[in-house]
């Protein structure tokens, strides 16, 4: 959708995750699985193969006992908008099938399963490992398909999938607004499943451009940082942490790596 095509405002949906509040409990992961019809297998311990759109990682400061510290970091899709907000996210740039696209209306990086033919370029391009490939057809143990969500299509073998900020919820909210004669939706009308579930209220979601939305202010918090900013992917997921080692871990460098000069302006 081109900019200015509609009379509504352009949005840039994003997330702010407060790592001081996050307890690593995993409720967000499971809420995401239930909402998005994510399949499961008997063995899910190989995390390279286990499909999780949102994964909670554990970070540690590498110090010996008792100076050790750990922090949990939930990682959804970063919905990178790239340099200059042109939507040149790493995955969109490489997809030969236009199966993944950057929406200028919402800032969401989509994934259109029926277009994807499984070349997995996007998986290689994504620096955050948010993308997963369906190596097998999804099979639900007898009876368990009854809890599938009709708003999300079930993916099949051979396609790539990832977090889309529960885009179906945006569509439902838009439809509702439309039938009520509104062009804009309220902040609370569109919230992804993980945000809704978080028992610690650690995740905040909204339009990063809208000063009335909570995320607008939160992203300016002095504790805020984003993951791998040095790559200039311009992610729309912000993290907050009062611990310096956690903020530093957001941009990890390998030993003796040449640190980039001036970061580019986004």
């Amino acid at each position: 959708m081109k900019e200015g095509q509609h009379d509504q405002h352009i949005k840039k949906y994003g997330m702010v995750i407060d790592l001081d509040k996050c307890t690593g409990c995993g409720a967000c992961m499971v809420a995401c699985m239930q909402e998005n019809n994510i399949p499961f297998q008997k063995d899910e311990t190989d995390k390279m193969l286990s499909i999780t759109w949102l994964r909670v990682f554990k970070l540690d400061n590498g110090k010996p006992y008792p100076d050790t510290d750990i922090c949990y970091l939930p990682r959804p899709c970063m919905h990178c908008s790239g340099i200059g907000e042109h939507g040149h996210s790493p995955c969109v740039s490489v997809c030969p099938a236009t199966a993944t696209d950057y929406s200028m209306e919402t800032g969401i990086v989509s994934q259109i399963y029926t277009r994807c033919f499984g070349c997995r370029y996007c998986m290689a391009a994504c620096p955050y490992h948010v993308r997963h490939f369906n190596w097998w057809d999804p099979v639900w143990p007898s009876g368990m398909e009854r809890s599938l969500n009709p708003n999300v299509s079930v993916r099949m073998r051979g396609v790539v999938e990832k977090c889309n900020f529960c885009f179906q919820r945006y569509q439902i909210a838009k439809e509702k607004a439309f039938t009520e004669g509104r062009t804009e939706i309220e902040e609370h009308e569109y919230q992804p499943a993980c945000v809704e579930a978080c028992p610690a209220n650690a995740i905040t979601f909204g339009d990063l451009l809208n000063p009335k939305h909570k995320v607008y202010k939160l992203k300016q918090d002095p504790r805020a940082f984003r993951l791998l900013e040095k790559l200039h992917t311009n992610p729309k997921v912000y993290y907050l942490s009062s611990r310096e080692w956690v903020r530093e871990a957001g941009d990890n460098y390998i030993e003796n790596e040449k640190v980039d000069v001036e970061p580019k302006k986004h």
Partner: peptide
């Protein structure tokens, strides 16, 4: 039944759920 979410008005959990309750 396709989804469990926390009940916003309930004074104990105020809309939150745990990982077990959610699944």
């Amino acid at each position: 039944a396709v989804q469990i979410a926390g009940m916003e008005e309930h004074p104990v959990n105020k809309g939150g759920t745990c990982i077990l309750g959610n699944s």
